[in-house]
Design a binder for these strands. Sequence first.
RNA 1: GGAUAGGUGGCAGAGAGGUUAUGCGUAAGACUGCAGAUCUUAUUUAUUAGGGUUCGAAUCCCUACCUAUCCUCCA
Length: 455
Amino acid sequence: MMIYDQLSRSNKKVNARGKVIKMYVCGPTVYDEPHLGHIKTYITFDVLAKYLRQKGYTVFYLQNITDIDDKIINRAEEIGVNALDLSKIFLRKYMNAMKYAKIDSVNFYAPATDHIREIIRQIRVLEGRNFTYRLPDGVYYRVWMDSNYGVLSGQKAEKLISGKRASVSDMKEDPRDFVLWKFKKKDSEPSWSSPWGEGRPGWHIEDTAIASKYFGNHYDLHGAGKDLIFPHHESELSIMSSLKGNTHVVDIWIYSGILKIKGEKMSKSENNFIPVSYLTDKYSPETIRMCFLSNNYGSETDFSDSLLEEARKNVDYISKAYQILHSASGKGSKIAVRNLFQIIEKEMDNDINTRNAIAGLIEVCSMIYKTKDNIDEDDAKYLISEIDKINSYLGIINIKEKEFSTNTIEKLIDLRDKLRKDKLYDESDIIRGALKESGIVIEDNHGKSGWHYEN
RNA sequence: GGAUAGGUGGCAGAGAGGUUAUGCGUAAGACUGCAGAUCUUAUUUAUUAGGGUUCGAAUCCCUACCUAUCCUCCA
């Protein structure tokens, strides 16, 4: 499988060495409601992890949680609560949002505050190699010592220096330098003791410390939203390279395109975000996944309701076709779709082209509809198993828990058919209406009436 | 200002030198007690503009214009 690597600006083969795939994705700073932008990014990496597993790889998917940060402290102060309590509240909301979108492929969530010791240890190693210096407000990282700084984002040192970076500490040796350990300012701030004094970790060192604890000095995939490339990942790359002595610390740097709304980036700081909670009642997880997987992960998406509506129709189309397969019986026609499944796999192997994979799946479904009254039972079983495989990573088929026995439903449909034959339509409509209330939709085709759960 | 992505039909969005993407929408038809779903056909030269390379360019090169992202916290 090939994935676009931001650092080399080319497609690279995943896990060329063929061992366990170590995958690290930057998690959120938990100071506000999770929103659709997060969902888009984490669906991307959920699909990637699940697809790799489906292909037979063992994937260890690690995600950090930034649960201590200026933003959290400021917000906590505004509303008068403890900073760590605040981050716990939003962490729970984040986890609920993940659950809603069926994002369940992460092996381990690592909160920063559980890794203070590792962070301090890593800063000490950097300190021993002269990569740090001390200012009144914290311990800083010396960027100029890394001549490669800027390779990931393409930022040039001179331009960055000449750029307006107003609010940074004037005392820094280099405007690009960033804080590794920030000293405590107020008593109300959460803090930990360190060799340099009471304080808390900087953002970039969190990830490098967590990654190195679980993965050592090299891993396969490092992902996030595109907005984290600079300065966050650039700085991570620098720290990791400084510790290791070379830049070969991550095989593939992978980024998902940001989510926009009305042409502008959706973000907490712009306050134009749609919280996940806004959708949970109106749309199924399958619909939201379909919505974001309907274009390629790397490109930006301008969010709108019509996008969701379109996604919902496609979810219905595929889900219904899938249900048709389950009612196939006896000997009938075989559907020649084997090569379509190969195409779908090829598209996924080509930098997770979910858009084309879904197009292929829609084509499979179209063929199911065309032969729906005469599908071979064994063929249907084969199709179901192939579609299950695809759905195991895409998660776009709405399979409702069966609340009623199929037998009961079919008996009611038989009864309704009899009434219809006698043209007792009022009575037959009562059955249809009653089933509808239970979330079961009847659709009459010539000959046989089909049914499916409402999506 | 610098850096990085892009600009494709009414809309959403793939493709990366040569064949219908696909979906939504729209129009007509088939089926039909109604409803819904599905199927068929159409939507006749959609690739920001202008140059160039080529037998052939959405696809490669140059120029211009436009948009977003990052350069400050961000998925």
